[in-house]
């Protein structure tokens, strides 16, 4: 894809603003490619999240898009019983402990939670 040296570039700059947005985006595609849900199921849940966020007062200017995306992913994961609320909760706390136990600048591993 380097045939054209002066390709038009995206004046918005990076397509993701923060790394977690890219991870959340990739997770949905990866699960879909594993056949765990259809793309139609996904867009239905995502549309619902966006509508609910707007009703709850989000001006929805595009900058919160991946927050809706993440919430939709969580819902679908629960709906498909790929995980549970308590399992996700326990894991979140474990990551928090891992961050707290990891010296600054070092990569964070989950095992650090139990140190």
């Amino acid at each position: 894809m380097t045939d054209f040296p002066f390709q038009p570039h995206d004046e918005e700059g990076l397509v993701f603003n923060e790394p977690w947005e890219a991870q959340a985006f990739g997770l949905v595609l990866a699960l879909h490619e594993q056949g765990l849900f259809s793309w139609n199921e996904w867009t239905t849940v995502l549309s619902r999240e966006i509508t609910e966020a707007q009703q709850a007062g989000d001006p929805d200017l595009g900058n919160t898009y991946y927050q809706h995306w993440l919430k939709a992913l969580e819902h679908l994961v629960l709906e498909k019983k790929l995980s549970s609320i308590s399992e996700l909760d326990v894991r979140k706390n474990k990551w928090l402990r891992a961050y707290a136990n990891t010296p600054h600048g070092k990569p964070i591993h989950l095992e650090a939670a139990d140190r």
Binding site: E18, P19, W20, Q23, A24, L27, Q67, L70, L73, E74, V77, S83, E87, L88, R91, K92, W95, L96, Y99, A100, N101, T102, P103, H104, G105, K106, I108, L110
Partner: peptide
């Protein structure tokens, strides 16, 4: 210590690792 991550980051990390 490493700065605690945002709630959004934590949620993604939790999903991903599980």
């Amino acid at each position: 210590h490493t700065e605690p991550p945002s709630d959004l980051e934590l949620r993604v990390k939790s999903l991903e690792s599980l």
